[in-house]
Nucleic acid binder design. Structure first.
Lengths: 348, 348
DNA sequence: CCGTGATTTGTTAGCGCTCACAATTACCTC
DNA sequence: GAGGTAATTGTGAGCGCTAACAAATCACGG
């Protein structure tokens, strides 16, 4: 815990103590091959003794590489963003990059611009934006940055490189699962209009129903929170007995609210109404009843995002497409399938 | 999206274009008072036109200030760490600092040391460690860093500055609440042994019972996960009718598992067994039944942490103690108090 | 219109490091 | 041991910026 207040040793100090030139020290540190073993050992010993550490600013100045990436995110306490962030950092660190994060309470042109400025001041070489709102992506596209930017979770239509889970597919899996289980129709509680993921999930739901020749019923909207799910659930409860037997909820938190509302209204899940969520948060398996949901592989999303960003930064040729969609996976539990005790995998 | 591949403009470029010396540009950027308005405007226009940005490395090199803080954390997908991280970053940004994060899968002497190295390479001026495990704090105390370190969530006994929520108090609130509701005894499902928070909560629980002249029953242990709560819940269900009427669970996720296990065993909550959790995650309010729990103010924890770290970095005199405990708050819901909303059954 | 002090601007010298190149040394072969 | 090559080490410059100081400019009373 001691941290010397006096100026830390420089490379020149180490060089003097080891009886070599500063360049030799630099070579040792840089794993340069042409250094005599004896010299290397001597230098390393002095480094060890003095606790010397290269000055990152000086290094960055001359190499023009800070080896730092930026991440802009919001709602980092939610499972999706938090998981993505984690994967992002881990992948970046594996490549020797440091990750600096800016977490916004709300994404707007202004806050985004400030965030990018802040990161830019910090010398990041590139930025990953966890920007699920369409408006945020649009803003991002307008902003001019001196570094490459990759978006996580954007939809089509923007020319920024992006990585996301195939929400449309996820919604088809969920809706298809309910239809296959014999439900004549499936209702949908969607996320906020501005969210690309919400739009994609709603579109996937609609497409599946239409492909099955079913007229999609009224679409409800929430804001991802359990409370909004609870409110929507109360409304849904009113439709039980009038054709409502299955609901696809756009995320697990809202599904939790729906479950509570249905329970309070005396509606049994899954006997009266089957419910599917989206995300597979760690809690879902223990909901009442355990929730059938769609699992997203955030870790792959994060890794691919860093991969693309580094290609952009280092000017490497793209190994794969600059617009990647990861496949989600249906997890069947009791909320749609009473006989599923705790079992994951195969759709019915 | 454009990011020039050619070398970005330097201060000298701007100076030339504005017909002044680079130092004048520096003064404009540094808000130095002694610059003629006319000159300032001219310089600013050129900056605007060229899109010039100061080189952070060069600045850091000469000022010896990177204005970057590091955070080491693990389990960032959990509510507590995620919230703390968020608060930390927000507070740091308000002070003009950038935050670089390293997220560890597991905290050990080795991984911690690597993390600090990585941050050090990145030039951080100080580090906040979200290290709830005692072993991690111990390791941290051993590691020598060239910068100050503040720990979030450590307990007593270590000489590193720390900020945490008063877990002991939280546990007393929870346990006391159950006793006050008429329960003769309270069982406890604790967190992992190595976690300071788990130890503090268990100690608070024990102290409250002993103060009430009650012999604390067997203590169960989980790993914070809903699954471990579920398993413990199955065991607890076996004690119903043999004196078990109330359980204090060390976090909400495990409480969720307990609730499910009790439900599956035909035990009603709260009529047969009352349950209290800890954390107040956003989902708790919608559990079946809504969970009484203890809310922690992570945002304050984060702000105070940054405050202390900056005092240490900037050599300011401490405005407050270097060992801060924030007060938690009891949130009463249906899982202990049937009349809270619409839960029928006789009162305890 | 000069002197005085305040304001505004320019000049110089590093910060600590890596790169390019020069200089030195070691190692062969004949 | 000379000559050549390869391995090892040293030297100088400069990355882009700020701090300290020097120089120039201005305002204005006498």
């Amino acid at each position: 815990m001691t941290h010397a207040q006096l100026r830390p040793p420089t490379m020149a100090d180490v060089a003097r103590l080891a009886g070599v030139s500063h360049q030799t020290v630099s070579r040792v540190l840089g794993d340069h091959p042409n250094v005599r073993d004896e010299t290397r050992v001597r230098v390393l010993r002095v480094i060890e003794e003095t606790g010397y550490r290269r000055n990152s600013s000086a290094r960055a100045l001359v190499t023009r590489r800070t080896r730092t990436l930026g991440v802009v995110a919001s709602d980092t306490t939610l499972h999706g963003p938090a998981s993505t962030l984690f994967a992002l950092e881990e992948a970046a660190r594996a490549e020797g990059y440091l990750v600096s994060t800016v977490t916004l309470r709300k994404l707007s042109m202004e806050t985004l611009s400030e965030a990018l400025d802040h990161l830019s001041e910090g010398g990041v070489e590139g930025v990953v934006a966890i920007a699920p709102q369409r408006s945020a992506v649009a803003a991002l596209a307008e902003l001019r940055c001196p570094f490459p930017v990759v978006v996580m979770g954007s939809g089509p239509g923007v020319e920024i490189p992006s990585v996301s889970v195939d929400q449309h597919l996820g919604a088809r899996l969920a809706t298809g699962h309910l239809l296959a289980a014999g439900h004549r129709n499936v209702w949908h509680l969607a996320g906020p209009e501005d969210w690309q993921e919400a739009a994609d999930r709603a579109a996937g739901w609609k497409a599946t129903l239409e492909a099955a020749g079913v007229e999609p019923p009224m679409l409800l909207r929430g804001d991802w929170s359990p409370l909004s799910g609870y409110r929507a659930g109360q409304e849904l409860a009113g439709w039980v007995g009038r054709g409502l037997t299955a609901v696809f909820v756009a995320n697990d938190q809202m599904a939790l609210g729906v479950l509570r509302a249905l329970r309070e209204a005396g509606v049994r899940t899954p006997q009266d109404v089957a419910v599917v969520g989206f995300d597979d948060i760690p809690e879902s398996e223990f909901f009442a009843p355990p929730l059938t949901t769609v699992r997203q592989d955030f870790s792959t999303v994060g890794r691919r995002g860093i991969e693309i960003l580094l290609e952009l930064i280092e000017g490497r040729p793209p190994a794969t497409a600059r617009r990647v969609a990861i496949e989600p996976q249906l997890v069947v539990r009791t909320s749609t399938f009473p006989h599923a005790v705790q079992w994951e995998g195969e759709p019915l």
